[in-house]
Design a protein around this nucleic acid. Structure first.
Lengths: 166, 166
DNA sequence: CATGAAGCGTTATCTTATTACATCCGGGTT
DNA sequence: AACCCGGATGTAATAAGATAACGCTTCATG
């Protein structure tokens, strides 16, 4: 399995995105089949839409796309599909952005830290464990038991720092 | 200066809250005076409202309070006061909750991690530096430079874990 | 093939946040 | 005092994000 830092670089660098999205979709389908959950047309399409870029999309952006393709045009349509995907670890919700992004390697570390590039808007997942450990340790000294944590960083990716994406 | 873990315990444990709020307000006033910024009535009252508990309040909760006391009753009234206070480091915005909480020790570490108790809803600030360092290191390996980070944990505070607050 | 749960669609509504513009107030200047 | 200015305050209107409640359809299962 690749290092987390490879995932980060791979997300921001130009790459064969067709391939990258296809892999993620296949993995998602496989995982859902295992769990006996149904990847219905709306759900599949929602995931595909998120997989088309590494950006995070708002629920209404997703909804517009779905509506344009013949699915329902009311908010619950998008929210339900997104909620399902989030629940199955295939999509992440970004609190800072009120937006959603496809998970690129479901199953690895399901509670990553997110790196959001303010220039290209792409979102990468970074290993969350060491950060969560640091947080839990500090919290624990004050008697607080951490159950879930949101870790989201805004900054500049290597590609943009080097003068913008190709 | 006390350890961060003391701040955490102090926030969740029963304590002389009058005193605690008064101190924070005094510090806030002093800091603003230094910066030549004006602590107007709405702003002062907004800060006081947030200081009345260690909970995070939504903008509309604050607005209701302000309106009931004779201030304007339109959203911008609350949002402007909150924005001002956040800008001067006297109030923090919690992304997870879409809510605001008073800063108890402005100036110390202005970018804390937040610990939100899911039982009593109180919010404590924990030392953010070590966590941010861990995050920056991981991100840096992937070529990402972190500029701002949101670190918010939900869990159970010591007081609630021990059977609920007094 | 009956049936009950899950899924999808709708309408309506709620919460959160911002834009745009009018008015007011305090300080410094003429 | 009259003037002007910028910041602060107020309003109305609307955008953006999210959920509740309800009915019809689909589908796996007995």
């Amino acid at each position: 399995m690749p290092e987390s830092s490879d995932h980060i670089a791979a997300t921001f660098a130009p790459h064969d995105h067709q391939e990258c999205a296809r892999r993620a979709l296949d993995e998602a389908a496989a995982r859902l089949a295992e769990q006996g959950a149904r990847l219905t047309p709306v759900r599949r399409r929602t995931l595909e839409i998120l997989l088309e870029s590494h950006r995070a999309l708002g629920a209404y952006e997703v909804l517009d796309r779905l509506a344009a393709e013949g699915f329902g045009r009311q908010p619950p349509v998008a929210y339900r599909a997104l909620e399902f995907l989030v629940g199955h670890g295939l999509v992440h919700r970004l609190q800072r952005l009120n937006a959603f992004t496809a998970c690129l390697h479901p199953g690895d570390d399901h509670h990553p830290a997110f790196l959001i590039c303010r220039s290209c808007d792409k979102v990468a997942e970074a290993a969350g464990v060491p950060i969560r450990d640091a947080l839990s340790e500090i919290a624990g000294k004050g008697g607080f038991r951490v159950e879930r944590a949101t870790i989201e960083a805004v900054g500049l990716c290597a590609t943009c720092a080097a003068g913008g994406p190709a």
